[in-house]
Simulated assay, not measured.
Amino acid sequence: MLLVLEARGLGVTDEIRERITACDDPDLLRTWLTRAVTMEAAEDIVTEPENGA
């Protein structure tokens, strides 16, 4: 997932990098990877939408 973010030119903070590398939930990682393809900012990928969608 970090490679996708890097290839898209999205900045990854140390905090986000830690959240990604520490995550051991395959379903959550799959969700994040799907978002990594379309979201405009790395922060949006690992943050749950406010409306729960």
Rank of each mutant, 00 (worst) to 15 (best):
D25H: 03
T31A: 08
R17C: 05
I20N: 11
N51P: 07
E48V: 12
W32A: 12
L5V: 05
L5R: 01
E6N: 04
E43G: 05
D25V: 04
N51K: 11
L10M: 11
E43L: 12
V37R: 12
R30Y: 01
I20Q: 09
E48C: 00
L33R: 14
E48M: 06
T38S: 14
T34K: 10
E48H: 10
R8V: 04
E18D: 15
A41L: 14
D44Q: 13
D27F: 08
T47S: 13
L28E: 12
T13Y: 01
E18H: 14
L5Y: 01
N51C: 09
M1Y: 01
L29Q: 05
D27T: 10
M39A: 15
A41T: 12
M39E: 15
D14I: 04
A41Y: 12
L3T: 15
E48R: 10
L33H: 11
I16C: 07
G52A: 07
T31S: 05
L33G: 10
G52E: 06
M39P: 05
A36L: 08
G9P: 07
V46A: 07
T34S: 14
E6K: 04
L10Y: 00
T21C: 02
R35A: 11
R17E: 10
P26L: 06
E43M: 07
E43W: 00
A7N: 14
R8N: 12
A22Q: 12
D27I: 07
G9R: 02
V12Y: 00
E18C: 12
C23Q: 02
R35C: 09
I20Y: 00
E18F: 03
R17A: 12
L5E: 03
T47I: 04
E50L: 08
D24E: 07
D44I: 07
E6T: 08
E40K: 14
M1F: 01
E18P: 13
D44K: 04
R30P: 00
V46G: 15
E18T: 15
C23D: 01
R8D: 05
M1D: 09
T31G: 04
A36E: 07
D25T: 05
G11R: 00
E18M: 07
T31V: 13
A53T: 14
A22N: 14
R30V: 02
M1E: 10
A7C: 03
L33Q: 15
T21L: 08
D27R: 11
L5F: 02
A36F: 03
L28K: 13
T38W: 12
E6A: 11
E6V: 13
T47M: 06
